[in-house]
């Protein structure tokens, strides 16, 4: 890994990173507000005879609006959070090499004494750090919101790092896939398209199964199903989830590790 290149990769995205981190803190802080505002109201409505579909909608993904850990999970699986984290894990991941290849800056970098492995590791490292920072910002925002609303006692704060690790492994998988696409294409378009498709399919399978009990089995095929903040925060963490995500992150990384140095880098069109 080349630390200078890692710093440069982060530095080139510092404005985006700052905006996304601040947005993540803001979004994270709003989630406990939604929980305190709506959970009791919705519980009363359901008790008064609201259709079961409403209850299903309150159990979005693997979360639930009836407990704080469940609400925080929804906050982390909400499209807003997905969009914020995907800026780096999917968007930047897919373009960091293919985009430079398309623009022609990759060949200027590779004119230096950098192996393609070193280049891959530096860029992957930088984007993993950015992804980790956004994820941490979401959790910090949730803790800030919970503290301000005086409900932080409902969760065990000491377990938050494990939630962060679980989330990081999930997003490392998407980042790893995006990087695998990035080293495989000479243009950013196909790399972004396939990386987004991979993310959306996984998300769709998870959400579909959570909202429609007849097809609950679809969740088994989603990587999001192995991101279980509510279980971790209620002391029921399953280390198998971490293991599965770790392996899932490793497979595209190994592919990229093998393929990237073997690719011919013809002159950009």
């Amino acid at each position: 890994m080349n630390l200078r290149l890692l710093r440069q990769t982060l530095s080139a995205r510092r404005s985006t990173l700052l905006i996304v981190v601040l947005s993540a803190v803001g979004w994270g802080a709003l989630v406990p507000v939604f929980y305190t505002s709506f959970s009791e109201l919705m519980a009363d409505l359901i008790a008064a005879g609201m259709p079961p579909i409403i209850e299903n909608l309150m159990n979005f993904g693997s979360g639930s609006f009836f407990t704080l850990p469940g609400a925080l999970t929804i906050g982390l699986q909400h499209p807003m959070a997905i969009a914020l984290i995907a800026v780096f894990a999917t968007g930047a991941g897919a373009t960091v090499i293919a985009g430079q290849r398309e623009r022609g800056t990759l060949e200027v970098l590779l004119a230096r004494p950098l192996s393609r492995h070193s280049l891959y590791l530096s860029m992957a490292g930088a984007l993993l750090l950015a992804t980790a920072a956004v994820l941490a910002a979401l959790l910090v925002g949730q803790l800030i919101g919970s503290t301000l609303l005086d409900i932080v006692d409902e969760i065990d704060g000491a377990l938050m790092p494990l939630v962060w690790l679980n989330g990081l492994l999930l997003w490392a998988t998407f980042l790893s896939f995006a990087l695998a696409m990035s080293v495989s294409f000479d243009r950013a378009g196909p790399a972004i398209g396939l990386s987004l498709a991979f993310l959306i399919v996984n998300y769709f399978l998870e959400i579909l199964g959570s909202l429609w009990t007849d097809v609950e089995w679809t969740q088994e095929y989603s990587l999001f199903h192995h991101f279980q903040p509510s279980e971790i925060l209620t002391g029921k963490a399953d280390l198998t989830d971490l293991l599965i995500l770790g392996v899932a992150a490793l497979v595209p990384a190994v592919y990229a590790w093998i393929v990237f140095p073997r690719r011919d880098l013809a002159a950009p069109a």
Partner: peptide, 29 residues
């Protein structure tokens, strides 16, 4: 590549950096 200098045809550079920063970065690398 440690011992050579290479000018690609139709060179592309990092547009958001200053000329001096580009040269610093590439010399560093």
């Amino acid at each position: 590549r440690r011992r050579i200098g290479y000018l690609p045809g139709g060179i592309a550079l990092y547009d958001s950096l200053t000329g001096a920063r580009v040269l610093d970065l590439l010399a560093d690398l």
